[in-house]
Write a protein that binds this DNA or RNA. Sequence first.
DNA 1: CGGGCTCTTGAACTAGCTCAACCGGAGTGG
DNA 2: CCACTCCGGTTGAGCTAGTTCAAGAGCCCG
Lengths: 219, 219
Amino acid sequence: MLMHTEITEKATKFPFLAPKAVEAGHDADIPAIPMSFGRNAEIYGEGERSGYAYKVLSGVVRVYQLLPDGRRQISGFHMAGDMFGLEPDETRHFSAEAVVPTKVLAIKWQNAARSASYLRELLQSAMKDLRHSQEHLLLLGRKNALERLISFLREMAERGSDKHVIELPMPRHDIADYLGLTLETVSRMFAELKDLGVIKLQGARRVLLDNHELAAMCS
Amino acid sequence: MLMHTEITEKATKFPFLAPKAVEAGHDADIPAIPMSFGRNAEIYGEGERSGYAYKVLSGVVRVYQLLPDGRRQISGFHMAGDMFGLEPDETRHFSAEAVVPTKVLAIKWQNAARSASYLRELLQSAMKDLRHSQEHLLLLGRKNALERLISFLREMAERGSDKHVIELPMPRHDIADYLGLTLETVSRMFAELKDLGVIKLQGARRVLLDNHELAAMCS
DNA sequence: CGGGCTCTTGAACTAGCTCAACCGGAGTGG
DNA sequence: CCACTCCGGTTGAGCTAGTTCAAGAGCCCG
């Protein structure tokens, strides 16, 4: 049984039209609402109405799904610049939480869909997410534990500013639920990569990558 | 090592604007090209340019990805009415094949994206696929073999005309590569569901569902 | 009928899980 | 400043679901 911690710090919402928000949107007539969330705060939950899409300004968001017995699958981590929360139905089938203190922009996407340029951005974003999900299907369906962790580290390295130093904002438990493993196995694979000389660890959350080794050992 | 059969029957292409095709599209000025493919014929392959999206007229299509050593993950089966082949990049990261003799409509989607109504349909389709992929992430990451097969049968039942009789167009191997299992495990799970009285088999490809039993045993 | 497929079944093996103990660093309070 | 505690992470030992390897059974189409 995989349960995530229940500690959720309060969310601060600003349901008014800040000038900054409008500026950050694409069309001046589409309201974009800035919101802040504390560590582990829920941004939205399964069953809520899914009127809004979100754009991350800062921080990290995890989007996930739960089975009735508590098993959890994280479908993705979203960082600054990423959109998330686009769902085809009226009600949400997924939940989203802030991994660390996070600022987002909420956009009522039904309104947004009236603008062709916005529509195009939404489509682009949906297609990017689709591709990410499908690559992740390959990971979950066909890769072993070590390959999964390597793929994860490369993905995180790709996103960070420094390709050699990765700062992991999420705990092992989240990594496990993203990679379809247990946190123990994730920990063991970190140890194995360290033994193989592919990474160095400075605490649990900072990873130094040896990209040469990494590139050498896989696709 | 999971290799699919290499038997691919020839594809017949009609690169002209048939009246039917235009009718089946949404705007008369967007060319839709009807194409036919034999069993196991490739519709597109990884590395090709990804200019076209497709709509299935009849038959079944599998979209998949391969690892260098031949491990395969099928991300979805597409049947009449479904769109597939929408990818964000210039070149394809996935491959598509006809599971059975199949007719599709090819649409140059960059053109299509000029029409707002078409854009909206593409977005809708992309969001639908996105949701399907993400549900499938939960299946691959967190469900056991029996749960996976049940989910699969429900999905197939949902799509077929008769909710009690499922005609499976694909072999066990494809089901395995869709569910992240081996074909032997798939076969064993079919046997187990039969023993549990949840299904009856008429040959390997026709499944009679006892929906009461099925509904009783899970979400 | 016969020759490939596809599918099923069996037996042994193993990657990853489960359960359990321990470790270590950051915050807290005496 | 040091002890305590809490939480996240690591490590170990045994177990099991699913894989692998292998042999057979249908079955479709010539």
